[in-house]
Computed example of a mutant assay.
Amino acid sequence: MLLVNPAARGGRTLRLLEPVARRLRAGGAELSVIVGDDPADALERACTAVSERPDALVAFGGDGLVHLAVQAVAGTDVPLGIIPAGTGNDIAGALGVPCKDPLAAARTVLRMRSRAVDAARIRAGSADEVFAGVMCCGFDSRVNERANRRTWPPGMARYLVATLEELRSFRPIPFRITLDDAEVVEREAMLVAVANTSSYGAGMRVSPDARPDDGLLDVVMLDALSKAEFLRVFPSVYRGRHVGHRAVTVRRVRSVRLEALPQDAVAYADGERVGPAPVHCEVMPGALRVIV
């Protein structure tokens, strides 16, 4: 079952659909293509497909489509295949799926070699979902909020404009963070990220040592900084060097609860909006089988 996001990369991904489908069929796959009218319809169709126990549900798109597919396959024995075709393909990259060449990713799917990896359940507001990559809450999620309200400029430039806009008004957020239902941390922070894999946001290595199969989540906390210091530290996230900064703390846990004022903090998981604080995340060891 091939789950397709027709809007990925502004619709340009659809040009790759025919050669990818041809490659899968040439490799012996009996292929059905799923395209939803909207995300809710796509999820319903994906869940129906998984209930029919296909050999695999393959997400052809970016991290957002992978997030949707994870809702359908988590906790089942149907493996998840990924053919990266989005603006950001962080989950695929973290799991060892070829990200530069969709046809190479299609060949990976055809080999059907899968591994068990963790997922995480997240509850925020009325939402109860599963994510495979990174949940963010704080400055980065506020940037997402701004970017999603904009229609221009296109692509990643929209996020750059949103980042500059948010910097003008952002103030550190008072968080109450409960680790493994035992340790409570109260601090003002720029952001808190909960990572099952190492990167998000098209290559920001927020938790460079996170492993998707260790049964743990990495909680990355960036304490309050001046805007000048934040701008100095921020570029180092692309190489994962920010974790050595005095304001950064990383903890490994099985569960974490973030409390803050709902108007201050909203959770995004795998780049998709989940809901406002409070946020609760819990690891689901081995909940996914992924073709790699």
Rank of each mutant, 00 (worst) to 15 (best):
A8S: 15
L16S: 15
R22K: 14
R23C: 14
R25T: 11
A26P: 05
G28Y: 10
V33R: 12
V35H: 05
D38V: 05
E52V: 11
E52I: 01
L57R: 01
A59I: 02
F60L: 14
V66C: 06
Q71I: 09
T76M: 09
P79T: 08
A85D: 04
D90E: 11
D101I: 06
D101P: 03
P102I: 09
P102A: 10
A104K: 03
A105I: 02
A106F: 01
A106H: 00
R123F: 08
G125R: 12
S126P: 06
E129A: 14
A132R: 05
M135Y: 08
C137I: 07
E145N: 12
A147C: 05
N148S: 13
N148Q: 15
R149F: 09
P154E: 08
Y159S: 09
S169I: 07
F175G: 08
R187L: 14
M190N: 03
L191S: 12
V194P: 00
V194T: 02
V194L: 00
S198G: 13
S199P: 01
Y200W: 15
Y200E: 07
R205M: 06
R205I: 05
D214F: 08
D214N: 15
L216F: 05
M221E: 07
L225P: 07
S226K: 06
K227D: 12
F230W: 11
R232I: 07
V233Q: 12
F234Y: 12
V243T: 15
V243F: 05
V250C: 04
V253E: 01
R254L: 01
R257D: 10
D264M: 00
A265Y: 02
Y268E: 01
A269D: 01
R273C: 13
G275Q: 11
G275S: 13
A277V: 05
C281D: 00
E282S: 13
R289Y: 03
